[in-house]
Write a protein that binds this DNA or RNA. Structure first.
Length: 842
RNA sequence: GCGGGUGUGGCGGAAUGGUAGACGCCGGGGACUUAAAAUCCCCUGUCCUCCGGACGUGUGGGUUCGAGUCCCACCACCCGCACCA
C-alpha cells in the first residue's frame, strides 16, 4: 500500500468482488435489525445505462450504504421494466426478436451497474417480461376482475389508416403517423379498464398522509384527481329530449348564452343524422390525435345546431346548442353551459360566433352595467343581473342555485372527478397478455389460475405493422374454459404501467406459487425511500398507489400507501455543440468528444474550425450531448463518477455534466487517498479545533444524507479534508482521518475500502458502523455577530455564545466602524437578535 | 390550452425573514521541477475618487428595523397532460 496514487482500474473490480463474496448486500428478512427499504425506479432496458440512471442509483446507493452503517437491515433491489415499445421497434428495424433484444440489453446494463459498485441485492433481480413475473401479474388482474375492478368499454385510440394500426401518442407527430405519414384519426375500440375512479376520494385523502412526499407532487396528483363540486342539471331541448350538463359555476347560470356538447355526444350524433353539415363537422373533429394537449390547443370550433335549450330559470328564454370540439365526452356529462362573461374559453367562443356576453359578477352592485372588455372575469365578486341572486357572493349564490334546482327537481349538487378510469389495453405484442378468453356462448371468461401464465408465443413476425398476436396462426385459438367450445384468446396486452404498479412487492418476496407472501411483504413495506424522476409524478405514482389500495381492498396486503417517502431527482444535462449548414439551414450536432472546448468557445477537433456552443439541455441522442457511463468509469473510476453525481447541484435540480467537473472529482479522490499516508497511529497531542470540526462534520454529513442533500454533505466533506490537510499531526488528527473514511464510504465505496484496509481497519468498511461523536463538541463557544446600521452591514464582532442583549448592544456601540457610520445621528431603536446581529435604527 | 416547478458571480450552487456568494469548477499569480505532469500557497461578484465606499439574488411594485427568503403583477425556461418509459 505504498503507492502514491489510488488506481481505480484495479481497485474497483477487486472490491466489487469482495462485496459479492461476502454477500454484504443480501437483505435478510429474518434479521431483527430495523428494516430499511431503499428503492429507485427500475430502468427500462434500452441497451445502455444512461447518465441519469447513474445519478438516480448513486443517490439510492448512498442512502442504502449509510443506513447499513447505521445498523439497519437494508433491502436495495434492482430489476427491469422490460416490456414496452422500443423492443418492438427494434424488431421492426433490425429484425431481432423483442425478447432476445431485451434480454441482451439487460445483461449489458447489469454489467454496467456492477461497474459502479452499487450495493444491490442481485439475488432479488426480476424482469417484468419473464413469465415468472407477468404470470403473477395475470393472476392479480384476474383477482381484480373478480372483485369488480376490471371492465370493458369503448374508448378512442390514434388510428393510422394506412398502416391499419393503433399508434401511441408519441408516434403521432403533427397529427400524422410517424412511419406512414398518414393523417391520424380517432377510432373507438372496445378495451379493458381498471376502476381507479372507485378509489378517487381515497387517493385524494391519502395524499394528506404522505408528508414525506414533495408538496409539488402531492399538488399535481390532487389537481389530476380533480375533485370539483357543482350542479348537474338538465336542459329541456326543443327536440323534446333532456340534456344533462355539469357546471362548477352554477352561480353564473344567468349569464349562460349557449350550450355546447361533445362531438360524440348522443345529442350531436342524433342531430347529425338529419344535418349533413353537422355530420361533416363531427367527422372533422375525429381528425388528429387523442391527446389533451392536441385537443385543447386546437382552434376552438363549434357547429350551430337548430336545437334550442330552454333556460331553467329565465322564463321563455332559449339558448342555442352547439357541437364543440373542445367539449370532452368523458368529463362530466359531455355537455356544458357556456358563460362567456366569466370563462375565458367561453368568451373566445362567444366572440367568434357572435353570442351575447353578459356580466353576472362584478366587484359590487354598481358594476351591473359595466361592460366586459377584453376578456372574461373568472374570479370572485358579487352577483349582478341575476334576478334573485343579485347581491350575493359567489359561494352563497352557488348554494342557492343548487338548492333551488333540487327543490324544483331539474338538477342536483354533484361531486365530479377529473380522474378517468385507467385504460390498460394495448394492441401490441411485447407486454403482459391479458388472461381472458372470448367465448361466443359464455362471453368473457378469465383464464383459470392453474392455467397461468398465458405465455407470449415466441414465433411472431414484425414484417407488417399491427399486433402480431392478432395474426398469429394458432395462439389465439383455444377452448373455452367454461364450456369447452372453440374460443379466442384476448390479444390485447397490458399497459406497462401495470408491470410497475406492483414490482416493489415482488422485490420484497418472491414465492414461485403466488405474486408475493403478505407476511414477508409486511416486513419491508411501505418503501422507506423511493427515488426517481419528476416525470413520473402523476401517472406511475398514482397507478402504484391505486394498485396497492386495490390489493388492500382484496385483503392481500395490510397497507394502502406503497411509498412512505418520495424523492424526485433532476436530470443530467450537458452543453450542446452544433453548426448550421449554410445551404439547408439544417442544424448538425456534435458529440462532446468530437469538440475541443476552451473558454467561451469551442472548435471541432476534426477540422479546427469553430462550432456554436448551444444551450445546456437534457442529454439526448438527438442532440448528441450524451456521455457514456462506461467511458467515464474507465477514464476516472467509479468513485469519481459517483462523487460527481452527488456534488454541487442539489439532487432535485438538473446537474450539468462537465469535463472539468469530473476531473475535479478525480483529483479529490486522490486527495482523500493521500491522507492514508498521513495516518499516524502514534501521533499524540490535542487539536481541539480539529476535534470540534470533525464532530460537527460527522454530525452534519449524517443529517444531510438523511435529508438527501448530498451536495451539502459533499461540501462538508471538502471542508473536513481541507482541515485535516492543514492540521499538524496530533491524536485528534489521526482520529479525524479514521472518521473520514467511513464518512466517504457511502459515496466513494471503493476508495474507502482501499483506505480502510491500508490503515488497518477491521473487516469491510461497507459493514463498519458510522463514526460515534462526542455530542459536547457540537456546542459553539463563540459566535460572530453582525452589526447593521441603515440596514447595511457595518461591522462584525466576536462574542461569547449566549451573550445578553445588553452586552451585545454595548459591544456594537463600542465599534469604531459603527460610530463612524452613525456619525452622531440620534439612535431611535436598537434591535438585537441574540447570537446573530445588532441593528441600529437612526 | 391546462396543471406543476425553476430563476443568486464566468459556471454549479450556499444562506431557520438577520453578515449574500459557504463548498466546488473555471481563470489569474506564485512555489516546487532541467522541463512537464502531479502537488502546494495566494487572489478571484461588479463598479468607484480603492487602508474606504456604492451597487448587486430574472423584471416591476409592496410589507418590514431588516427581503434571495413573505405578498402582488409580469418575463424566461423546464416537467406532465392519461398509448414514451
Amino acid at each position: 500500500m505504498n503507492d502514491t496514487r489510488f488506481d481505480p482500474s484495479q481497485a474497483d473490480g477487486r472490491w466489487q468482488k469482495a462485496w459479492d463474496e461476502a454477500q454484504c448486500f443480501r437483505a435478510d428478512s429474518a434479521s431483527d435489525k430495523p428494516k430499511s427499504y431503499v428503492l429507485e425506479m427500475f430502468p427500462y432496458p434500452s441497451g445502455r445505462i444512461h447518465i441519469g440512471h447513474v445519478r438516480n442509483y448513486t443517490m439510492g446507493d448512498v442512502l442504502a450504504r449509510y443506513k447499513k452503517m447505521r445498523g439497519h437491515e437494508v433491502l436495495h433491489p434492482m430489476g427491469w421494466d422490460a416490456f414496452g415499445m422500443p423492443a418492438e421497434n427494434a424488431a421492426m428495424e433490425k429484425g431481432v426478436h423483442p425478447g432476445k433484444w431485451t434480454r441482451e440489453n439487460i445483461e449489458s446494463m447489469k454489467a454496467q451497474l456492477k461497474r459502479l459498485g452499487f450495493a444491490l441485492d442481485w439475488s432479488r433481480e426480476l424482469a417484468t417480461c419473464e413469465p415468472d413475473y407477468y404470470g403473477h401479474e395475470q393472476a392479480l388482474f384476474v383477482d381484480l376482475f373478480e372483485a369488480g375492478l376490471v371492465y370493458r368499454k369503448e374508448s378512442e385510440v390514434n388510428w393510422d389508416p394506412v398502416d391499419q394500426t393503433v399508434l401511441a401518442n408519441e408516434q403521432v407527430i403533427d397529427g400524422k403517423g410517424w412511419r406512414s405519414g398518414a393523417e391520424i384519426e380517432k377510432r373507438k375500440l372496445s378495451q379493458w379498464f381498471l376502476k381507479i375512479t372507485d378509489f378517487a376520494p381515497d387517493l385524494l385523502d391519502g395524499l394528506a398522509s404522505l408528508d414525506k412526499w414533495p408538496d409539488k407532487v402531492r399538488l399535481m396528483q390532487e389537481n389530476w384527481i380533480g375533485r370539483s363540486q357543482g350542479l348537474q342539471f338538465a336542459f329541456d331541448l326543443s327536440t323534446g329530449e333532456k340534456l344533462e350538463v355539469y357546471s362548477t359555476r352554477p352561480d353564473t347560470i344567468y349569464g349562460a348564452s349557449f350550450v355546447a356538447v361533445a362531438p360524440d355526444h348522443p345529442v350531436a350524433r342524433a342531430y347529425a343524422e338529419g344535418d349533413e353539415g353537422a355530420a361533416e363537422f363531427i367527422a372533422e373533429c375525429k381528425r388528429g390525435g387523442t391527446t389533451a394537449a392536441t385537443v385543447e390547443t386546437a382552434t376552438k370550433l363549434g357547429y350551430l345546431t337548430g336545437v334550442k335549450a330552454r333556460h331553467p330559470l329565465i322564463a321563455d328564454h332559449d339558448l342555442p346548442v352547439f357541437i364543440a370540439n373542445f367539449v370532452l365526452m368523458d368529463y362530466g356529462t359531455g355537455a356544458v353551459m357556456g358563460v362567456p362573461g366569466h370563462d375565458q374559453r367561453d368568451f373566445e367562443f362567444a366572440k367568434k360566433y357572435h353570442l351575447p356576453i353578459l356580466r353576472v359578477i362584478g366587484a359590487s352592485a354598481a358594476d351591473a352595467d359595466r361592460p366586459l372588455g377584453s376578456g372574461a372575469e373568472p374570479g370572485e365578486g358579487i352577483l349582478v343581473n341575476s334576478g334573485p341572486l343579485d347581491g350575493l357572493d359567489v359561494e352563497t349564490a352557488k348554494g342557492k342555485v343548487i338548492r333551488r334546482a333540487e327543490a324544483d327537481g331539474w338538477g342536483e349538487g354533484k361531486t365530479v372527478w377529473r380522474l378517468r378510469d385507467w385504460g390498460v389495453s394495448r394492441q401490441r405484442y411485447w407486454g403482459t397478455p391479458i388472461p381472458f378468453i372470448h367465448c361466443d356462448s359464455c362471453g368473457i371468461v378469465p383464464v383459470p389460475k392453474d392455467q397461468l401464465p398465458v405465455v407470449l408465443p415466441e414465433d411472431v413476425d414484425f414484417k407488417t405493422p399491427g399486433n402480431p398476436l392478432e395474426r398469429h396462426p394458432t395462439w389465439k385459438n383455444v377452448a373455452c374454459p367454461q364450456c369447452g367450445a372453440q374460443a379466442r384468446r384476448e390479444t390485447d396486452t397490458l399497459d406497462t404501467f401495470v408491470d410497475s404498479s406492483w414490482y416493489f412487492l415482488r422485490f420484497a418476496s418472491q414465492p414461485a406459487d403466488k405474486p408475493f407472501d403478505r407476511h414477508e411483504v409486511a416486513k419491508w413495506l411501505p418503501v422507506e425511500q423511493y427515488i426517481g424522476g419528476i416525470e413520473h409524478a402523476i401517472l406511475h405514482l398514482l397507478y402504484a398507489r391505486f394498485w396497492t389500495r386495490a390489493l388492500a381492498r382484496l385483503g392481500q396486503i395490510d397497507f394502502t400507501e406503497p411509498f412512505a417517502s418520495l424523492f424526485t431527482q433532476g436530470m443530467v444535462t450537458h452543453e450542446t455543440y452544433f453548426r448550421r449548414e449554410p445551404d439547408s439551414g439544417r442544424v448538425v450536432y456534435f458529440a462532446p468528444d468530437e469538440v475541443e472546448r476552451s473558454g467561451q468557445s469551442a472548435v471541432l477537433k476534426e477540422d479546427g474550425f469553430p462550432v456554436t456552443v448551444g444551450r445546456v439541455v437534457k442529454m439526448s441522442k438527438s442532440k448528441r450531448n450524451v456521455v457514456d457511463p462506461d467511458t467515464i468509469i474507465a477514464q476516472y473510476g467509479a468513485d469519481a463518477v459517483r462523487w460527481f453525481m452527488l456534488s454541487d447541484s442539489p439532487p432535485e435540480r438538473d446537474l450539468p455534466w462537465s469535463e472539468s467537473g469530473i476531473e475535479g472529482c478525480a483529483r479529490f479522490v486522490q486527495r482523500v487517498w493521500r491522507l492514508v499516508a498521513e495516518h499516524d497511529p502514534q501521533a499524540s497531542g490535542e487539536d481541539a479545533d480539529l476535534a470540534r470540526k470533525t464532530a460537527r462534520i460527522v454530525h452534519d454529513v449524517a443529517e444531510t444524507i438523511e435529508a438527501l442533500h448530498f451536495n451539502k454533505a459533499v461540501a462538508r466533506l471538502y471542508e473536513l479534508v481541507s482541515a485535516i490537510e492543514k492540521a499538524k499531526p496530533s491524536a485528534d488528527r489521526t482520529s479525524a482521518i479514521e472518521a473520514l473514511f467511513p464518512l466517504v464510504a457511502p459515496m466513494m465505496p471503493h476508495l474507502a475500502e482501499e483506505a480502510w484496509q491500508a490503515i488497518g481497519g477491521e473487516g469491510l468498511i461497507a459493514e463498519t458502523a458510522w463514526p460515534e461523536i462526542d455530542e459536547s463538541l457540537l456546542e459553539d463557544e463563540s459566535v460572530t455577530i453582525a452589526v447593521q446600521h441603515k440596514g447595511k452591514l457595518r461591522d462584525t464582532l466576536t462574542a461569547p455564545a449566549g451573550a445578553s442583549k445588553d452586552v451585545l448592544e454595548e459591544m456594537a456601540l463600542a465599534s469604531e466602524k459603527v460610530q463612524r457610520s452613525l456619525d452622531g445621528a440620534p439612535i431611535r431603536k436598537i434591535i438585537v437578535v441574540p447570537d446573530r446581529l445588532v441593528n441600529i435604527v437612526t
